[in-house]
Amino acid sequence: MRRSLPLLPLTALLVSALVFGWSQQRLSTLRQESADPELLIVLPRFAQVLLAGGDRYLAANLAGFRVLVAETQYMKASDYAVQAKLQRDIAWFNPLHEDNYYIAAALLPWNGELDAAQYVLRRASAARRFDWYPLFHYGFLFYHFHRDPATGAKHLLEAVPRVNNVQDQWALQNVAAIWIEKGYQTGNAATMVEAMAEDSPAGNFRNYLRVRAQRLRDLERLQGAAGAYRERFGRQPERLDDLVSAGLLPAIPQDSLGMGFSLDASGTPVLNANPPVEPPR
Protein backbone atom coordinates (compact mmCIF):
# COMPACT_ATOMS: atom_id res chain seq x y z
CA MET A 1 0.00 0.00 0.00
CA ARG A 2 1.43 3.33 -1.03
CA ARG A 3 1.95 5.84 1.73
CA SER A 4 1.01 9.48 0.99
CA LEU A 5 3.26 12.37 1.90
CA PRO A 6 2.28 14.18 5.09
CA LEU A 7 0.29 17.32 4.30
CA LEU A 8 2.45 19.84 6.20
CA PRO A 9 5.82 18.92 4.65
CA LEU A 10 4.21 18.78 1.22
CA THR A 11 2.66 22.22 1.69
CA ALA A 12 5.97 23.63 2.88
CA LEU A 13 7.70 22.10 -0.14
CA LEU A 14 5.17 23.66 -2.52
CA VAL A 15 5.44 27.08 -0.88
CA SER A 16 9.22 26.85 -0.94
CA ALA A 17 9.11 26.05 -4.65
CA LEU A 18 6.83 29.03 -5.27
CA VAL A 19 9.13 31.33 -3.31
CA PHE A 20 12.14 29.98 -5.18
CA GLY A 21 10.43 30.55 -8.51
CA TRP A 22 9.41 34.06 -7.49
CA SER A 23 12.95 34.87 -6.43
CA GLN A 24 14.36 33.55 -9.70
CA GLN A 25 11.91 35.68 -11.64
CA ARG A 26 12.79 38.69 -9.51
CA LEU A 27 16.49 38.12 -10.11
CA SER A 28 15.97 37.95 -13.87
CA THR A 29 14.41 41.43 -13.90
CA LEU A 30 17.29 43.10 -12.07
CA ARG A 31 20.11 44.85 -13.82
CA GLN A 32 23.26 42.79 -13.68
CA GLU A 33 25.88 45.45 -12.99
CA SER A 34 25.91 44.98 -9.20
CA ALA A 35 29.35 44.14 -7.87
CA ASP A 36 27.99 41.55 -5.47
CA PRO A 37 25.62 38.84 -6.71
CA GLU A 38 25.12 37.84 -3.06
CA LEU A 39 23.35 41.16 -2.47
CA LEU A 40 21.05 41.29 -5.46
CA ILE A 41 17.85 40.48 -3.61
CA VAL A 42 16.38 40.18 -0.14
CA LEU A 43 13.43 37.86 0.36
CA PRO A 44 10.68 38.75 2.83
CA ARG A 45 11.42 37.56 6.34
CA PHE A 46 8.73 34.88 6.31
CA ALA A 47 10.21 33.47 3.09
CA GLN A 48 13.72 33.39 4.54
CA VAL A 49 12.48 31.48 7.58
CA LEU A 50 10.47 29.14 5.39
CA LEU A 51 13.49 28.34 3.22
CA ALA A 52 15.45 27.68 6.41
CA GLY A 53 12.96 24.98 7.40
CA GLY A 54 11.17 27.24 9.87
CA ASP A 55 14.36 27.88 11.87
CA ARG A 56 14.82 31.63 12.37
CA TYR A 57 18.34 31.13 13.72
CA LEU A 58 19.34 29.24 10.60
CA ALA A 59 17.75 32.00 8.53
CA ALA A 60 19.92 34.51 10.40
CA ASN A 61 23.05 32.45 9.69
CA LEU A 62 22.22 32.08 6.00
CA ALA A 63 21.67 35.82 5.64
CA GLY A 64 24.84 36.43 7.64
CA PHE A 65 26.80 34.25 5.23
CA ARG A 66 25.62 36.42 2.34
CA VAL A 67 26.87 39.50 4.15
CA LEU A 68 30.20 37.91 5.03
CA VAL A 69 31.07 36.85 1.48
CA ALA A 70 30.19 40.17 -0.14
CA GLU A 71 33.21 42.00 -1.55
CA THR A 72 32.79 45.40 0.07
CA GLN A 73 35.59 47.08 -1.88
CA TYR A 74 33.40 46.98 -5.00
CA MET A 75 30.07 47.82 -3.39
CA LYS A 76 27.91 50.78 -4.38
CA ALA A 77 25.26 52.64 -2.39
CA SER A 78 22.58 50.30 -3.74
CA ASP A 79 24.55 47.28 -2.54
CA TYR A 80 24.87 48.76 0.94
CA ALA A 81 21.13 49.38 0.99
CA VAL A 82 20.53 45.67 0.36
CA GLN A 83 23.15 44.71 2.93
CA ALA A 84 21.46 47.01 5.45
CA LYS A 85 18.15 45.24 4.83
CA LEU A 86 19.82 41.86 5.28
CA GLN A 87 21.45 42.93 8.52
CA ARG A 88 18.17 44.29 9.84
CA ASP A 89 16.62 40.90 9.08
CA ILE A 90 19.44 39.07 10.88
CA ALA A 91 18.96 41.28 13.93
CA TRP A 92 15.24 40.51 13.86
CA PHE A 93 15.75 36.75 13.46
CA ASN A 94 18.52 36.52 16.05
CA PRO A 95 19.56 39.70 17.89
CA LEU A 96 22.27 37.69 19.67
CA HIS A 97 24.15 37.24 16.38
CA GLU A 98 27.66 38.54 17.13
CA ASP A 99 29.09 38.87 13.62
CA ASN A 100 26.06 40.86 12.56
CA TYR A 101 26.51 43.72 15.00
CA TYR A 102 30.28 43.84 14.45
CA ILE A 103 29.81 44.19 10.69
CA ALA A 104 26.96 46.66 11.10
CA ALA A 105 29.07 48.92 13.34
CA ALA A 106 32.11 48.69 11.05
CA LEU A 107 30.44 49.25 7.67
CA LEU A 108 26.88 50.51 7.63
CA PRO A 109 27.06 53.97 9.22
CA TRP A 110 30.10 54.91 7.15
CA ASN A 111 28.24 54.04 3.94
CA GLY A 112 24.97 55.89 4.35
CA GLU A 113 23.07 53.29 6.40
CA LEU A 114 23.10 54.83 9.87
CA ASP A 115 19.50 53.90 10.71
CA ALA A 116 20.15 50.23 9.96
CA ALA A 117 23.31 50.23 12.08
CA GLN A 118 21.38 51.74 14.97
CA TYR A 119 18.64 49.14 14.64
CA VAL A 120 21.12 46.26 14.68
CA LEU A 121 23.09 47.65 17.63
CA ARG A 122 19.94 48.49 19.59
CA ARG A 123 18.68 44.91 19.19
CA ALA A 124 22.09 43.47 20.09
CA SER A 125 22.40 45.72 23.15
CA ALA A 126 19.03 44.57 24.46
CA ALA A 127 19.69 40.87 23.82
CA ARG A 128 23.39 40.56 24.68
CA ARG A 129 23.27 41.82 28.28
CA PHE A 130 26.59 40.07 28.95
CA ASP A 131 28.34 42.08 26.22
CA TRP A 132 29.27 45.76 26.52
CA TYR A 133 30.53 46.25 22.98
CA PRO A 134 27.12 46.82 21.32
CA LEU A 135 26.37 49.65 23.74
CA PHE A 136 29.80 51.16 23.13
CA HIS A 137 29.25 51.15 19.35
CA TYR A 138 25.69 52.40 19.79
CA GLY A 139 26.89 55.30 21.94
CA PHE A 140 29.60 56.13 19.40
CA LEU A 141 26.97 56.52 16.67
CA PHE A 142 25.30 59.24 18.71
CA TYR A 143 28.59 60.95 19.48
CA HIS A 144 30.06 60.89 15.98
CA PHE A 145 27.16 60.83 13.53
CA HIS A 146 24.41 62.61 15.47
CA ARG A 147 26.80 65.04 17.18
CA ASP A 148 25.08 64.15 20.45
CA PRO A 149 27.79 63.39 23.03
CA ALA A 150 25.30 63.51 25.92
CA THR A 151 23.29 60.55 24.59
CA GLY A 152 26.50 58.79 23.61
CA ALA A 153 27.82 59.12 27.17
CA LYS A 154 24.52 57.77 28.54
CA HIS A 155 24.94 54.55 26.57
CA LEU A 156 28.59 54.19 27.58
CA LEU A 157 27.59 54.40 31.24
CA GLU A 158 24.89 51.78 30.62
CA ALA A 159 27.66 49.48 29.37
CA VAL A 160 29.87 49.83 32.45
CA PRO A 161 28.03 47.24 34.64
CA ARG A 162 28.50 44.66 31.88
CA VAL A 163 32.29 44.97 31.94
CA ASN A 164 34.26 42.46 34.01
CA ASN A 165 37.67 44.07 33.58
CA VAL A 166 38.21 47.06 35.89
CA GLN A 167 40.56 48.76 33.42
CA ASP A 168 37.88 48.60 30.72
CA GLN A 169 35.32 49.99 33.16
CA TRP A 170 37.59 52.95 33.86
CA ALA A 171 38.24 53.47 30.17
CA LEU A 172 34.50 53.60 29.42
CA GLN A 173 33.84 55.97 32.30
CA ASN A 174 36.72 58.20 31.23
CA VAL A 175 35.37 58.50 27.69
CA ALA A 176 31.87 59.07 29.09
CA ALA A 177 33.20 61.88 31.32
CA ILE A 178 34.85 63.55 28.32
CA TRP A 179 31.63 63.29 26.29
CA ILE A 180 29.60 64.64 29.22
CA GLU A 181 31.85 67.70 29.26
CA LYS A 182 30.98 68.30 25.61
CA GLY A 183 27.28 67.46 25.78
CA TYR A 184 25.95 69.23 28.87
CA GLN A 185 25.91 72.71 30.35
CA THR A 186 29.04 73.12 32.43
CA GLY A 187 27.33 73.01 35.84
CA ASN A 188 25.27 69.95 34.93
CA ALA A 189 28.34 68.21 33.54
CA ALA A 190 30.24 68.92 36.77
CA THR A 191 27.40 67.43 38.83
CA MET A 192 27.33 64.28 36.69
CA VAL A 193 31.09 63.73 36.86
CA GLU A 194 31.00 64.33 40.62
CA ALA A 195 28.34 61.62 40.89
CA MET A 196 30.48 59.26 38.79
CA ALA A 197 33.39 59.90 41.16
CA GLU A 198 31.33 59.15 44.25
CA ASP A 199 30.04 55.93 42.67
CA SER A 200 33.60 54.77 41.95
CA PRO A 201 35.62 52.82 44.53
CA ALA A 202 38.19 54.78 46.52
CA GLY A 203 41.49 55.09 44.72
CA ASN A 204 43.24 56.80 41.86
CA PHE A 205 40.36 56.67 39.41
CA ARG A 206 37.95 58.30 41.85
CA ASN A 207 40.52 61.04 42.45
CA TYR A 208 40.94 61.48 38.72
CA LEU A 209 37.19 61.96 38.23
CA ARG A 210 37.15 64.45 41.08
CA VAL A 211 39.85 66.42 39.32
CA ARG A 212 37.78 66.43 36.10
CA ALA A 213 34.75 67.59 38.07
CA GLN A 214 36.74 70.34 39.78
CA ARG A 215 38.02 71.73 36.50
CA LEU A 216 34.40 71.89 35.33
CA ARG A 217 33.50 73.84 38.48
CA ASP A 218 36.43 76.17 37.75
CA LEU A 219 35.20 76.57 34.18
CA GLU A 220 31.73 77.36 35.52
CA ARG A 221 33.25 80.14 37.65
CA LEU A 222 35.14 81.50 34.65
CA GLN A 223 32.01 81.49 32.50
CA GLY A 224 30.05 83.27 35.22
CA ALA A 225 32.77 85.92 35.49
CA ALA A 226 32.79 86.34 31.68
CA GLY A 227 29.04 86.91 31.76
CA ALA A 228 29.44 89.53 34.48
CA TYR A 229 32.21 91.18 32.42
CA ARG A 230 29.90 91.47 29.40
CA GLU A 231 27.15 93.02 31.51
CA ARG A 232 29.53 95.53 33.07
CA PHE A 233 31.51 96.62 30.02
CA GLY A 234 29.18 95.78 27.14
CA ARG A 235 31.83 93.73 25.36
CA GLN A 236 33.46 90.34 25.47
CA PRO A 237 36.70 89.80 27.40
CA GLU A 238 39.70 89.52 25.11
CA ARG A 239 41.82 87.54 27.56
CA LEU A 240 41.13 85.51 30.68
CA ASP A 241 43.31 87.96 32.58
CA ASP A 242 40.69 90.63 31.86
CA LEU A 243 38.44 88.87 34.37
CA VAL A 244 41.09 89.27 37.05
CA SER A 245 41.87 92.87 36.09
CA ALA A 246 38.17 93.73 36.39
CA GLY A 247 38.10 92.30 39.91
CA LEU A 248 35.70 89.50 38.98
CA LEU A 249 38.13 86.74 39.98
CA PRO A 250 41.10 86.73 42.36
CA ALA A 251 43.11 84.60 39.90
CA ILE A 252 42.72 82.29 36.93
CA PRO A 253 42.16 78.73 38.25
CA GLN A 254 44.94 76.24 37.71
CA ASP A 255 43.91 73.11 35.81
CA SER A 256 45.21 70.03 37.63
CA LEU A 257 45.20 68.12 34.32
CA GLY A 258 47.63 70.66 32.89
CA MET A 259 45.51 71.65 29.88
CA GLY A 260 44.13 74.91 31.20
CA PHE A 261 41.39 77.24 29.96
CA SER A 262 41.04 79.71 27.12
CA LEU A 263 38.46 81.92 25.38
CA ASP A 264 36.66 80.81 22.24
CA ALA A 265 35.83 83.14 19.35
CA SER A 266 32.77 84.47 21.19
CA GLY A 267 34.74 85.30 24.32
CA THR A 268 33.36 82.39 26.32
CA PRO A 269 35.77 80.46 28.57
CA VAL A 270 36.29 76.86 27.45
CA LEU A 271 38.44 73.89 28.38
CA ASN A 272 41.60 73.43 26.35
CA ALA A 273 41.57 70.13 24.50
CA ASN A 274 45.37 69.95 24.61
CA PRO A 275 48.06 71.46 26.83
CA PRO A 276 48.58 75.13 25.94
CA VAL A 277 51.49 75.81 23.63
CA GLU A 278 54.20 77.95 25.17
CA PRO A 279 54.69 81.18 23.17
CA PRO A 280 58.10 81.52 21.51
CA ARG A 281 60.68 83.43 23.50
Results as ranks from 00 to 15, higher is better:
190 A>E: 04
64 G>P: 01
107 L>E: 09
155 H>R: 02
99 D>L: 14
224 G>A: 13
269 P>G: 07
60 A>D: 06
130 F>G: 08
262 S>P: 01
269 P>C: 10
120 V>D: 06
145 F>S: 10
72 T>E: 12
124 A>E: 06
203 G>S: 09
106 A>P: 03
278 E>H: 10
188 N>P: 14
131 D>G: 03
47 A>W: 04
197 A>K: 00
251 A>C: 12
233 F>N: 11
15 V>P: 07
160 V>M: 02
270 V>K: 04
150 A>T: 00
42 V>I: 11
134 P>M: 02
69 V>F: 07
39 L>H: 02
31 R>P: 01
22 W>G: 07
146 H>L: 14
55 D>T: 10
85 K>I: 14
68 L>A: 14
210 R>M: 08
174 N>V: 01
76 K>Q: 14
56 R>I: 07
185 Q>E: 14
105 A>F: 04
75 M>S: 10
167 Q>N: 09
205 F>A: 05
179 W>S: 04
72 T>C: 12
55 D>Q: 09
35 A>M: 08
128 R>T: 07
235 R>A: 10
192 M>E: 05
65 F>G: 06
157 L>P: 00
261 F>N: 06
206 R>M: 11
224 G>C: 08
255 D>K: 02
190 A>W: 08
158 E>S: 00
205 F>I: 09
36 D>F: 03
235 R>T: 12
171 A>L: 06
193 V>R: 09
78 S>E: 15
178 I>F: 02
218 D>I: 12
256 S>H: 08
26 R>G: 03
204 N>K: 09
34 S>T: 15
4 S>F: 09
50 L>P: 14
88 R>W: 11
125 S>A: 15
87 Q>V: 09
232 R>A: 15
158 E>L: 05
220 E>M: 11
